[in-house]
Amino acid sequence: MSRIIAGAAGGTPLVSVPGSLTRPTTDRVKEALFSRLDAFEVIADARVLDLYAGSGSLGVESASRGARTVDLVEFDGKASEVCQRNADLVNSVAGRKTVSVHRSKVESFLDRAAAETAWDLVLLDPPYPLDEVALAAVLAKLLPHLAGGAVVVVERSARTPEPSWPEGMERFAEKKYGETRLWFAEPGVDTQAESEAGEPAETEESRG
């Protein structure tokens, strides 16, 4: 059974999506991922977006660890219901609505996002059948909605190639855990400067 690993709701069991509708991130990979994100100091007070959320495990883990807001995006009806149940668990602990669930295709959600919407941490765990061209298109739609200093994490099969990053998004690290590979990317300096509306862009030289 999957659980929230740490934070205010640490140890809370999570509801799983029935059957094989989704490919959940294992607790081992999740623990390693969040250890690294904690080292980047990117979670506390962050605006988090969890795309292809499945059960919402990654997003609610972020909320438990101090994220300001979390948006879970999942199109499948059964999976989005599970997202809502897990969101309710964390929101009840927080005493406020930190986690919101959006039943939507990822592309449509990003198309509808307001121009000024910007996320600090974006987690993508797309289904294996999603091909590299489609993933590249999603990353391109995401780029205008990244805050300065944002981190983007893409979880893929270790057998798939590195994602095709759009111009203005740069990979700074990757890590393999068994059959899973995590890719870490961030907006380039020029993109960060634009997202800060004229304020100096910040860089995270300690990353990678």
Rank of each mutant, 00 (worst) to 15 (best):
A136S: 14
A136H: 12
A136I: 02
A136Y: 10
A136Q: 10
A137V: 10
A137L: 08
A137Y: 03
A137K: 14
A137I: 09
V138G: 11
V138E: 07
L139Q: 14
L139I: 07
L139K: 07
L139V: 07
A140S: 13
A140N: 09
A140G: 01
K141I: 09
L142P: 00
L142N: 03
L142M: 08
L143A: 15
L143G: 09
P144W: 10
P144H: 00
P144N: 02
P144V: 04
H145N: 06
H145Q: 06
H145L: 00
L146D: 00
L146C: 04
A147T: 02
A147D: 06
A147H: 00
G148Y: 01
G148T: 06
G148Q: 10
A150T: 06
A150K: 09
A150I: 00
A150S: 09
V151E: 04
V151Q: 03
V151D: 06
V152E: 04
V152P: 03
V152W: 02
V152A: 02
V153S: 01
V153W: 00
V153H: 02
V153Y: 02
V154F: 00
V154Y: 00
V154M: 01
E155Q: 13
E155G: 03
E155M: 11
E155I: 00
E155W: 02
E155D: 07
R156G: 08
R156H: 12
S157L: 06
S157C: 11
S157Q: 13
S157R: 08
S157Y: 01
A158Y: 05
A158T: 05
A158P: 06
A158M: 09
A158E: 14
R159D: 14
R159I: 09
R159H: 15
R159T: 11
R159P: 05
R159G: 13
R159N: 12
T160A: 15
T160C: 12
P161F: 05
P161N: 10
P161A: 05
P161L: 09
P161R: 03
E162P: 02
E162C: 12
P163V: 07
P163Q: 11
P163G: 10
S164D: 15
S164T: 15
S164A: 15
S164I: 15
W165D: 08
W165P: 10
W165G: 08
P166W: 07
P166A: 05
P166F: 05
P166K: 08
E167T: 13
E167Q: 14
E167V: 14
E167G: 11
